[in-house]
Write a protein that binds this DNA or RNA. Structure first.
Lengths: 94, 94
DNA sequence: TATATTTGGTTTATATTATAAACTAGTTTA
DNA sequence: TAAACTAGTTTATAATATAAACCAAATATA
């Protein structure tokens, strides 16, 4: 009847992060922060959770002397997102 | 960009409860428990939250000598559910 | 006819999660 | 050189979900 919703995705901020990353090749921390309107601290924590789960990959470098955190969805993340969307449909008719 | 998701609905069990109640005139506690596979304790707590928010109305009576808790979605609850579904679409393309 | 079990829940305690606040480390500007 | 800003991370706290324990009454069992 009701499918279990991946708890890693069933949260507003992480879902927004993944939603963004589904539609771009990669995205900077600051870009994600701006689009999601999240605080830096919250975003940092949630990005780390997605990284630990291997839903995204994170590369740190520098740009114009400033630290730069670049995020990219993984194949595993993409699959999880798609499954999540499919499972959601057991709760709401679309 | 990303709409705020009603935190009262953006949780697996409460969303399932509301999803059920969207499609029936009313439903018994035990029926909801069976369909959602929730524990009685968890269900009791979440039904109360939905009641406090006036998303559902709850009537207690007796049936075959046993307590009977009947739940029904309110107009406010129906509207909230519809808004939630609409807002979700800012996260996932359907 | 005790007593054990089941029904239909509620209450309370605990574990998990999200979030904000505080902090780090370095850069730019005045 | 000191203040303010960038780009984050870490830690503490608040909120939430969940399970475990409990309750009252009904029914089954010995």
């Amino acid at each position: 009847m009701f499918k279990n919703l991946d708890p890693l995705l069933h949260t507003q901020l992480r879902l927004a992060i993944m939603s963004l990353l589904m539609n771009v090749a990669e995205a900077e921390f600051t870009y994600i922060k701006e689009k999601t309107k999240a605080t830096a601290g919250n975003l940092s924590v949630q990005i780390d959770k997605l990284k630990v789960a291997e839903y995204i990959s994170v590369e740190k470098s520098f740009k114009n002397n400033y630290p730069l955190t670049m995020c990219k969805i993984t194949q595993k993340g993409r699959a999880a997102f798609e499954t999540y969307v499919k499972d959601l449909k057991s709760y709401i008719k679309l």
